[in-house]
């Protein structure tokens, strides 16, 4: 995959990821409506197949809007998913505007690196915590955190064996993610597994914005693997 193609895929997936959140904010009203209205227009423009060199200007404008939106909410509106969207947007903008090819690669490769770290560090901080190793932490998530989307899901907190197995599955997969870069034949199955993980989080915990935000960064890791490792 070439750098240009990977960037084009990333900006297309990012535009798709930002459309529904934009519509949500526009419908909710409030002072942020013009910001999200403008961002929605830019997202739709970014989806236009013949956008060509204008996508650099659109990414720059979206980055400016993203800063205004950060100020509006004094931080990200939806935590990690907004942070990933911002990271993608800033890396894309830099990759568009930096003058030399290797600098562009550095900016876009940084996104692939951060995507890898997003899984590895999540696994690392969990496995260092005894509560995660015993399954207690995941039981607490179901028992009293704000995330389960329905009260009946809290009953899963009593399924100790299931949640112990689930905890270790999550930690091991997150920690092994960097090894998937060894080959595209290991990377693609890992990305499918990771996307399924985000999908289950969306269904059980309502974290639907994470799904497309993370998937939008996948072209960067596919490009990074192909560019520096191959095979």
């Amino acid at each position: 995959m070439t750098l240009d193609l990977a960037m084009r895929w990333t900006e297309t997936l990012l535009a798709i990821a930002l459309i529904m959140p934009g519509v949500e904010h526009i419908r909710a009203g409030g002072k942020e409506r013009p910001l999200f209205g403008l961002r929605l227009i830019l997202c739709l423009l970014l989806l236009y197949p013949e956008i060509g060199a204008y996508s650099a200007w659109i990414c720059l404008a979206m980055s400016g809007l993203a800063v205004l939106i950060l100020h509006r909410f004094e931080g990200p509106y939806n935590g990690g998913s907004d942070r990933m969207s911002l990271l993608i947007l800033f890396c894309l903008t830099l990759a568009h505007w930096l003058p030399q090819e290797n600098w562009k690669e550095l900016a876009f490769g940084y996104l692939g690196l951060q995507l890898t770290l997003s899984y590895f560090i999540s696994g690392w901080v969990k496995i260092r915590n005894p509560d995660w190793r015993t399954g207690r932490a995941l039981r607490d998530v179901f028992a009293f955190s704000a995330y389960p989307v329905a009260e009946n899901l809290r009953g899963l907190a009593d399924r100790k064996t299931l949640l112990l197995a689930g905890s270790w599955l999550v930690m091991v997969c997150e920690l092994l993610f960097p090894l998937s870069l060894a080959s595209k034949y290991t990377l693609i199955p890992f990305l499918v597994l990771a996307a399924s993980f985000h999908l289950s989080n969306a269904m059980f915990f309502g974290l639907n914005r994470f799904v497309l935000a993370w998937i939008a960064a996948y072209p960067s890791i596919i490009w990074l693997q192909d560019r520096f490792i191959g095979g």
């Binding site: 990200p76 990690g80 907004d82 942070r83 990933m84 911002l86 990271l87 800033f90 951060q114 770290l117 997003s118 560090i121 999540s122 901080v125 969990k126 915590n129 932490a137 998530v141």
Partner: peptide, 10 residues
């Protein structure tokens, strides 16, 4: 956002 911590649910 530029230097995320990625310590979800630590």
């Amino acid at each position: 956002a530029l230097i995320p911590s990625w310590n979800f649910f630590d």
